[in-house]
Design a protein around this nucleic acid. Sequence first.
DNA 1: CATCTATGTTGACATACGTCGAACCAAACG
DNA 2: CGTTTGGTTCGACGTATGTCAACATAGATG
Lengths: 125, 125
Amino acid sequence: MSNTKVLPLLEPEVPETVAPCCPPLTERPFTAEEAETAARMFKALGDPVRLRLFSAVASHEGGEACVCDISDVGVSQPTVSHHLKKLKEAGLLTSERRGTWVYYRVEPSVLAAMGKLLTIAPAAA
Amino acid sequence: MSNTKVLPLLEPEVPETVAPCCPPLTERPFTAEEAETAARMFKALGDPVRLRLFSAVASHEGGEACVCDISDVGVSQPTVSHHLKKLKEAGLLTSERRGTWVYYRVEPSVLAAMGKLLTIAPAAA
DNA sequence: CATCTATGTTGACATACGTCGAACCAAACG
DNA sequence: CGTTTGGTTCGACGTATGTCAACATAGATG
């Protein structure tokens, strides 16, 4: 019932959407370029509605969710669509149409990448 | 030389600035309230300049940095001050004046909290 | 006190952002 | 086909945001 088993499906679709952009925040000062890249992801999660949508997809069984399953976040349906698009553009989600419905799925590597960013110390050196 | 040893200084100054707000994003859909809280932190890091400032402080020796040491990020001095204020308001940094200079320091627990947010699965149940 | 340096605050401005309703597209169904 | 249902795109609107120059404040120093 959990989503622990759906994570290994790293298909080589658009690998550049979430590159290993940056070292941990605490390792050394970010360059302008690194900051630009990382900030784009943080920014995407910096809106309450988007965060709820992302969490809803990430926690949904199968690691993916139909829009109809997650669009109850208190804003209009066009707004939901708008935010999902933003999340896609940030490389956090991917979408796929299957018949009537559109399914969104989290890009698994992105969570790991952002998690590393917030690592205290890599215990290096 | 690294900042691994300065982390244990969790002084009970303002503990509510970074509460254990939320479970991992992948555990269950965020409530509106959780999303509001977490989004505030993500939003603070969602600007390239702020991210560079935060990274500069976090990676600086001693876990803290004078404004003069980190203000070389390509924007004017008032803008730097403005962003540092935002980071403070988000609970990510604290500041202290010591003589002539003002020192900023990262709130250590905040990194751990945000890191947990991005955990894949807590391996629970 | 006068003054210099280091930061923070204020006010103004252009741009970006979140939101909605309306129009539009795509698949299913009669 | 026409209609219904699910979802996106468009256009508009109000608000928030990032930025700077100008001014203000806090210590240090003479």
